[in-house]
C-alpha cells in the first residue's frame, strides 16, 4: 500500500501541474467577451423570466442580467431543492448570499458568463 500511496500522490500532483501548465499555454479565451453575448443582447421582462420556472427550463435574474440555467441545473453541487425554487425569479440576493450570508466563489462568478442570455428590460 506504501507503493500505491507514493504512485497515486505523485500522479496526482503531476496531473495538477499539467492542468496549470496547459492553462498557462492556452489562449486567454475566458477574458474575451462571448460573441453571442456581445452581438445578440436581448432584453427580457420579469414576466418572460417567470415563465421559465422548472428544473428543465430554468431562468433567473441576477444583478440585472438574465441567465438560462436549464443545462446547469444537474451540475449544481447543492441539493436541487435549494436551487430550483429560484428558477423564474429574481435571485440576486440568493446568489450573493446563498441565503445565509455566504458568497459564491470567483469560479462560480466566471461560470455565470456562459449561461447569460440577455439583460432585464
Amino acid at each position: 500500500m506504501r507503493k500505491l500511496f507514493i504512485f497515486a500522490t505523485l500522479l496526482f500532483w503531476l496531473a495538477v501541474a499539467g492542468f496549470w501548465m496547459l492553462s498557462v499555454l492556452a489562449p486567454d479565451a475566458l477574458d474575451t467577451p462571448l460573441p453571442e453575448a456581445a452581438t445578440t443582447e436581448r432584453q427580457w421582462s420579469t414576466a418572460d423570466v417567470a415563465r421559465h420556472h422548472t428544473a428543465d427550463d430554468c431562468w433567473m435574474i441576477i444583478d440585472g442580467q438574465v441567465y438560462d440555467f436549464s443545462a446547469y441545473v444537474p451540475e449544481h453541487p447543492s441539493n436541487p431543492a435549494l436551487f430550483i425554487p429560484w428558477c423564474g425569479k429574481e435571485a440576486t440576493e440568493a446568489y450573493l448570499t446563498k441565503t445565509r450570508g455566504r458568497a459564491h466563489s470567483p469560479y462560480a462568478d466566471s461560470l455565470l458568463l456562459q449561461y447569460r442570455i440577455g439583460v432585464l428590460r
Binding site: 496549470w20 496547459l22 486567454d28
Partner: peptide, 13 residues
C-alpha cells in the same frame, strides 16, 4: 483555463 480554475483554490470559495 476553466479546468485549472476548478483546481485552483483561489478561484474557489
Amino acid at each position: 483555463i476553466r479546468a485549472w480554475q476548478v483546481l485552483a483554490p483561489w478561484a474557489q470559495g
